[in-house]
Simulated scan of single mutants.
Amino acid sequence: MTNNEILLTKEGLEELKAEMENLRVVRRKEVAEKIKAALAFGDISENSEYDEAKNEQADIERRILKIENMIKNAKIIENSDSNGIVNIGSRVKIKDIEFDEIMEYQIVGSAEADPFKDRISNVSPLGKALMGKTEGEVVNVETPSGAIVEYEILGVN
């Protein structure tokens, strides 16, 4: 992997393309309308609506550039048969041994990571610990506080 490569699943790439389309077609138009309405208030030197709309416009343009760069440098992760070995793209079912809690995550590149969608990065502490492991193995993960948490791998898809 080169320094500029962004690891993405096919689904992650499609989500980025959809977000960029929304930003270009919908959000740009909405912000243009806000700017137009704010200009109707007159003097822009003390017009907070105008300033807010221009800042929003700049944020949208920055996000579009970031997404374009991510897409340009994307390396698609193929969901090939990993023979039960945890790799990027794998769905992993694990059990927190201490709390007897079962969780399932998909291992993805850092650009796609979203713990609220059960997607963890391959470079996160848990992701690193799981990479290359197989069902039945126990991994130890150091938390930010320094505690060690043990997880048992229950399944790899």
Rank of each mutant, 00 (worst) to 15 (best):
V86W: 10
R63N: 03
N79D: 13
K75V: 08
I77V: 14
D51N: 10
E52R: 08
D81P: 05
N83G: 10
D59I: 09
A53G: 08
L65S: 14
L65K: 15
V86G: 01
M70Q: 15
V86T: 10
A53C: 10
E68G: 09
N69L: 15
E78M: 10
V86Q: 04
E61H: 04
A58D: 11
I85M: 05
K72I: 03
D59A: 15
V86P: 10
I67Q: 05
V86N: 07
E52M: 09
A74D: 06
K54D: 00
I67P: 04
N79R: 06
G84F: 06
I77K: 07
G84I: 02
I76F: 00
M70S: 11
D51T: 06
I77Y: 08
K66M: 14
G84V: 05
S82W: 06
D59T: 14
E78N: 10
N69G: 14
M70V: 00
K54W: 02
I60N: 02
D51A: 14
S82C: 07
R62T: 06
Q57V: 01
S80W: 11
N79F: 07
R63I: 06
N69T: 14
N73L: 07
E52F: 01
E56Q: 15
K72S: 12
K66N: 13
N83H: 14
S80T: 13
Q57C: 02
N83Y: 04
A58S: 08
S82E: 05
I71Q: 12
I60M: 02
K54L: 11
E56F: 12
E61R: 04
N73Y: 01
D81N: 08
E56W: 13
N55R: 15
I71W: 07
A53F: 02
I77G: 08
D51L: 08
I60T: 07
L65N: 14
D51C: 00
E68A: 14
I64L: 02
N73E: 03
D81V: 01
K66T: 13
N87V: 13
A58C: 01
K72R: 15
I85S: 00
I64A: 02
I67R: 04
K66S: 09
I64Q: 01
M70I: 03
L65M: 12
L65E: 15
K75W: 00
A74R: 06
G84T: 04
K72M: 14
D59L: 13
I67T: 06
N73Q: 06
E78R: 11
E52K: 11
D81W: 03
N87I: 09
Q57I: 02
N69V: 05
E61L: 15
I64H: 12
V86R: 03
I85C: 01
I77W: 04
I64F: 14
A74P: 05
I85Y: 00
N55L: 12
N73R: 11
A74K: 03
I60C: 02
N55G: 04
D81A: 00
S82A: 13
S80L: 08
Q57T: 01
E68R: 13
